[in-house]
Design a protein around this nucleic acid. Structure first.
Lengths: 215, 215
DNA sequence: CGACCGATTGACTTGTCTCAAATACGGTGG
DNA sequence: CCACCGTATTTGAGACAAGTCAATCGGTCG
């Protein structure tokens, strides 16, 4: 059913997919590439409030105007549905509403966890937290899971990272240099990151889930 | 149907309603009082990630463990349902899942808007933003809507405000003093706030929706 | 009255921002 | 293949907003 309705749209890096305030006629999900959800103030200050990766859902069934800007960070392919049709489908297919609810609850948890990052972590921990997100994503999807060692490409520029972490790009750059100096990460070029020890990175991020007590 | 299942629980101010990590056997909504959603780090730093007011929903159908602490800030009455029963109801009544989805989307928007507050606003704007939330809530529910003038009681201590805004309580106190000195607000005692001009407050908060350009 | 808790205020420290300059990188055209 | 350009990034020096530590004040409750 969804298959029949869907169509694809492509966006170039830097292109705005949805403007805050605009009426959107479609919902969809990311097929490939990365996009950001951004909130902006009148004086130009802006804050990234979400990072959209493949399989993430975009749009809000039952809502008219978008609240945030959606911007393609890399070249982006989305799989879209006309909103009206999609909403009808939600009404006629209870299972879909439940699935959407689950996804939205996950996003809400992620947003709230990010509030802790923004509010209470220092610059070094913020960078480590962001790197952890990329690392985890790659750890699950790729094959390079050799005993805690990981590598991946940063999908964001320093500026975009700064915007997500609520820092300046200078501070991002400095803290990446410090983490490199301290051996938490290694760099190949500006974008390719090697994490020799994922646990170490997680501890640096301040979420030492694994119970790594620093006595 | 819901009526038959519901039961009430009361909590005293300061009491923890739900511990992060615990399995919760109920979902519910706030009847009266205020509660906070709080995220904590191992070293004790914590960040409030949500403020629960009357009519707000608590709990996550389909999820086992809670992710955040829920703490009663004032005396609190909640109307609860056993989670299992509620989930069955969600499955059998499509309309409920749709309603929950809408509420969750609203919460997600609110969380993301708060990320802008945490990430990009300075202390003065943060305080003004928080006061705006209380003011708006009271403006809609009460009768004191005399030409932009409003008054209300702060439901939170300075410490709790600091925790929500990601500031220290000293900074909260100082900025409240400054807003008072500048005539943006007046205080009666420590908790009762008078807002002579709501538009002014909104401008101070940085979200000048009304287009109030400061040339 | 005295103890206690929340709030205010002050003096000093510090992490991050700001402004500025230098450097590396990727792509383009000769 | 190389020189050149624009953009992304790094690095430095100084400024400033908010944090920290500490003292005081005010109200409330036993």
């Amino acid at each position: 059913m969804l298959e029949k309705m869907k169509y694809c749209r492509s966006f170039e890096a830097g292109q705005t997919v949805i403007w805050a305030g605009d009426e959107t006629s479609f919902v969809g999900s990311v097929v490939s590439g990365i996009a950001t959800l951004t909130q902006t103030m009148e004086d130009g200050r802006s804050q990234m409030v979400g990072l959209l990766q493949p399989s993430d859902f975009v749009g809000r069934p039952g809502r008219d105007g978008a609240v945030f800007n959606v911007i393609a960070v890399s070249d982006l392919v989305m799989c879209c549905f006309r909103k009206k049709q999609f909403e009808d489908l939600v009404h006629s297919t209870p299972h879909i509403a439940q699935r959407l609810l689950e996804m939205t609850l996950d996003e809400l948890d992620a947003a709230r966890e990010w509030m802790l990052v923004l509010g209470r972590k220092n610059a070094r921990e913020k960078i480590a937290s962001l790197l952890s997100i990329f690392a985890r994503r790659d750890a699950s999807s790729s094959s390079n899971a050799r005993e805690g060692r990981l590598e991946f490409d940063l999908p964001l520029t320093r500026e975009a990272m700064a915007n997500y972490l609520s820092l300046t790009l200078e501070t991002v750059s400095r803290q990446i240099s410090v983490l490199k100096r301290d051996g938490v990460i290694q760099l190949q070029g500006k974008r390719h990151v090697i994490v020799p020890d994922l646990d170490r990175l997680l501890i640096e991020a301040g979420d030492d889930d694994d119970g790594g007590m620093i006595v």
